[in-house]
Each structure stands twice: as structure tokens, then as C-alpha cells.
Simulated scan of single mutants.
Amino acid sequence: MQALLSQPTKAIIFDMDGTMVDSMPHHTSTWLDFAQKHGVAMEIGELMRRTTGRTGLECVRLILDQPDMAESQAWALVHEKEQLYRDIFGPIFKEVAGFSAFHTATRARGLKVAVGTAGDIHNVEFALGHLQMNPPPDAIARGDEGLSGKPTPAIFLAAAQRIGIAPEHCIVFEDAPFGIEAARRAGMRAVAICTSNTPEELAGPHVIATVHNYEELLQSNFLETLHVP
């Protein structure tokens, strides 16, 4: 673990839902509504295990068991579901505890910041509009750009490429098992944010910290333990 901490860190890549914003209960409820509306009976825990971290396109095809569904049809269904999510979450929007303060501290350390999310542009604009990050992320890689969803590393690798930082110098912050695995496949270290999964579900040899929120990271002086060149 000490070797992982001493490795130079130049950038942080944040997943968005469940990591930056405390949105997963609302994604869960709206995916369940979507499944029921379309006649799919699936236990909610299983539904979320199979979809969290995947792109909307992948989720719709998986839930409806139509792997060859046309992209135009699938994305129309995604937008239907995500609009419902934004309508419900917008009035009660909240960040994961301590995120804004941690982002400010991250910038003060001179680290670059990217977002690597399976979410689409509408959900990204929704979240960033509420968070008002200053400065905004240096780069964003999204699930509606033709990148494969997690656990493949495509989204995180695209984010790193866009900020010009090698994967081994990036730390991913993630709340889902697929995202933790995507970070490993990308050759990146990870911090597990346990907003919707247990520490055991988010374990891995590349995981350098496991917390419930950013307040815990700030209290432990996590950023100060990193080797920032």
C-alpha cells in the first residue's frame, strides 16, 4: 500500500453518480419504474448490480433483453428514464458529503481533475449545474460518446488521455464494483466511496482508501499522503 501511495499522483478522475452526487437511490427507483413499465420483473438489487456503471444504451438493451435494439430506439428510452430521474432528484439534489470541499482541496494541491461517467450529456450538465465546480473539470468522458461502459476501462482511459496524464498517475474515485474494476483494468489506483456498496464489494489490490464520503478523506488528510510532484 505504501508503494501505491508513494507513486506520483497528477490527476483525480471522479465517477459521477454515487461518487460526486448522492443520486443512486433515485437512479435505482427510476430504473425500477422503467423496468416495470416495460413489463420486466427483476429484483432491484440484481437490476442495479447488472446496470450500475454501464452506459444507458447498454442498460436498456440489457434490461429489455434486446441486445440488437437500434441505438436510436434505445437512446429514446434512456432519455425517457433519465428525464424522470432529473425531475425527481432535481428538487432534492445533494452532493456526496464533503465533495465540494474535497474538490477545492484537490485543486489547491495542483492536481488535474476529470470526470469519467457512464452518464449522458444531459445528466452531466444537470449534475455540474448544481455542483458549480470552480474551476470546472479539465475533461469529461461520458457514456454517450460511443465509449463502452464499465467494467471496461474505456471511459477512464479517455478521461486520462484528454487531460494528458498517464493512467498510472491517476486516481479514480468510484462507488460501484464495475467502476473499481474498470480502474484496475485501466492501470489506475482507486478510492472506494461506499455510498451504495460495502467495502468488501469495492475491494481490490489497487484500492488505496475506502471511505463513506469525502469528509472522512479530509479529516484523515488523505491528499497530504499522496506524492504530488
Rank of each mutant, 00 (worst) to 15 (best):
Q2G: 01
S6K: 15
S6F: 04
S6M: 15
I12T: 05
F14V: 06
F14P: 01
D15M: 08
H27Y: 03
F34S: 11
Q36P: 03
K37P: 00
H38M: 04
G39S: 09
I44L: 07
L47V: 08
L47W: 02
G53W: 01
G53V: 04
E58C: 11
E58D: 04
C59L: 02
V60H: 04
L64W: 15
D68V: 05
M69S: 10
V78H: 13
E80W: 15
G90Q: 05
F93D: 04
K94Q: 06
E95D: 11
S100V: 15
F102M: 04
T106L: 05
A108D: 05
R109E: 01
I121E: 09
V124C: 13
A127R: 05
P135Q: 12
P137M: 10
E145D: 02
T152V: 08
T152C: 10
A154H: 14
L157I: 12
R162G: 06
I165H: 02
H169R: 11
H169I: 01
V172A: 08
F178R: 11
I180W: 05
A182T: 09
G187D: 13
R189E: 10
C194S: 14
N197K: 06
E201L: 00
L202V: 01
P205S: 11
H206V: 09
H206R: 13
A209K: 13
H212R: 14
Q219W: 02
L223Y: 03
L223V: 11
L223C: 11
H227T: 08
P229D: 11
